[in-house]
Design a protein around this nucleic acid. Sequence first.
DNA 1: GCCAACGTTGGC
DNA 2: GCCAACGTTGGC
Length: 153
Amino acid sequence: MNYWLFKSEPDAFSIDDLKQSKTTHWDGVRNYQARNMMRDDMKIGDLAFFYHSNTDVPGIVGVMKIVKEAYPDHTAFDPRDKHYDPKSDPDSPRWFMVNLRYLRKFRKVIPLGLLREFANDELANMPLLRKGNRLSVMPVTEKQWSFILTLCD
DNA sequence: GCCAACGTTGGC
DNA sequence: GCCAACGTTGGC
């Protein structure tokens, strides 16, 4: 069983959107590292944090679960889509996505600033806290996962 | 809105 | 295969 963190800009797709739709396909990932993790390592039943980026208080806002393993991201085939990639075609898809189900929304966001306070201790080596980190999908260790859950009330 | 950090592209 | 230029991400 593995743990993950997914970033999203709440203006585009928020935890409240997911709460309403119950499940979603996480399309639009166009980074090879993130793609490889989705395609090769994510399994049904894995848990993931939902992170709000590019917003007034960036941070972790809830939990979701992987309910479908990687399959081709069809938005890459659509010329009108924002994430269209002419180099991906249905015969040899370049980009993949997984399906996620809403589990819970925290009563309060766990701010990035709070997480940073533990960057040298419980949350050492967390990719999210590395300077200049731009990965939109990243792994979380079991210890980090458990610790972060103690930060929400 | 600024800008540092990063991934990708493409010329050579 | 190098690396400069460029576009994007995302915190502040």
